[in-house]
């Protein structure tokens, strides 16, 4: 093994960016939902449906692309399709929560079941398989624009080919400042803040609360759906309708980041770094390998879930201390 292994470093960085893009997009979607006071457990199902619709759109267009249809347009279509699928599934949850005042958690679990089963049914009837891979034209290289790929160095080849080959990365880069703007500067953001402070007062002052909540949940669902589609780019195996609980992790990231875009960005980068380290742990020499144990590399899969528990314990303790102080002072009076 040559040291330093630049190719491996490039691959690790690239998969880190691919994973962090999907985490950032999904948790930003979760943030928009949470601003409308909806703890969206259906994020997992929204991710799966987004991935499913994007995958099937690209799969349906393979024949057209081989005849000379521009593949970039197909990818744009796939991103839009995944976003709209996420929008629809988020709306299903929003109807339960806002219009019917039902149990949002159970509805979220139901949507998760629906998402996985929809993928399996569609794959069975349309292709006759259990799993599906993204077609190679979905990743954007110089060849999609008519050029030829030149090799720069081992690191940059591995990094650029897999990190910035998808539209989702570019969408995320555009979307982070836009969501800052929406939440802090736009009318929707101010209305959401007013609603968060006091629902009755904001309604009396003429804010259409149902409309604002629906719009923010719809925006969140759209973003989270794109996040699900971007998950496919970081996946090495074929997609089989399972997303390994990453939607729940995104929900935990929203809670840890306390619904603020900067904190959410930081925590999602942290989580994706840990998950990618776990994925490449066998190839990194300074991490324990667990060779004695069968399937010992799966121990690293536990890390993000344990980290969520530890960080949430730390974060919620501080939040609730303030609350308890308030309660005590009220009791003193």
């Amino acid at each position: 093994m040559n040291f330093p292994d630049w190719k491996l470093a490039g691959e690790i960085l690239a998969s880190f960016i691919a994973l962090s893009v999907s985490f950032v997009l999904t948790s930003f979607g979760g943030m928009f939902n949470r601003r409308a006071k909806m703890t969206n457990i259906a994020l997992e199902g929204i991710m799966i449906t987004g991935a499913t619709s994007g995958l099937f759109v690209t799969y349906a267009c393979t024949n057209i692309v081989s005849q000379g249809f521009p593949s970039l347009l197909v990818v744009v279509l796939a991103v839009l399709a995944s976003g709209s699928a996420g929008f629809i599934f988020a709306m299903l949850n929003a109807i339960v929560k806002i219009t019917f005042h039902g149990n949002q958690y159970v509805a979220g679990i139901a949507i998760n079941i629906l998402g996985t089963s929809l993928f399996v049914i569609l794959a069975y009837f349309l292709i006759g398989q259990d799993n599906l891979r993204l077609p190679s034209f979905a990743s954007i290289t110089a060849e999609t624009f008519g050029g030829t790929t030149r090799s720069i160095s081992a690191f940059w080849d591995a990094f650029l080919l897999t990190a910035f080959n998808n539209l989702a990365t570019i969408t995320a880069l555009i979307l982070i400042p836009i969501s800052y703007y929406i939440l802090d500067k736009s009318r929707l953001g101010f209305r959401l803040k007013a609603y968060e402070e006091n629902e009755v007062a904001s309604r009396k002052l003429g804010i259409p609360i149902k409309k604002t909540r629906y719009t923010s949940i719809g925006i969140g669902g759209f973003i989270a759906g794109i996040g699900g589609f971007s998950f496919l780019y970081g996946l090495k195996a074929a997609f089989n309708g399972q997303i390994y609980g990453y939607g729940f992790l995104a929900l935990a990231i929203v809670l840890i980041g306390r619904e603020q875009p900067g904190r959410i960005l930081f925590t999602s980068l942290l989580f994706s770094a840990i998950i990618t380290l776990g994925d490449y742990a066998v190839q990194i020499f300074w991490l324990p390998n667990f060779h004695n144990i069968v399937n010992g590399d799966k121990i690293y899969y536990l890390l993000p879930y344990l980290l969520v528990l530890i960080v949430l314990a730390w974060a919620c303790r501080r939040q609730n201390k303030q609350l308890e102080n308030v309660k005590q002072s009220e009791e003193g009076k």
Partner: peptide, 21 residues
């Protein structure tokens, strides 16, 4: 597909979450 029954289950649970309302 084997998942069609779990689709039915999921939709039942979805309607059940706001059925009374």
């Amino acid at each position: 597909s084997s998942a069609s029954i779990s689709f039915i289950m999921g939709s039942i649970i979805f309607f059940g979450s706001f059925g009374v309302v």
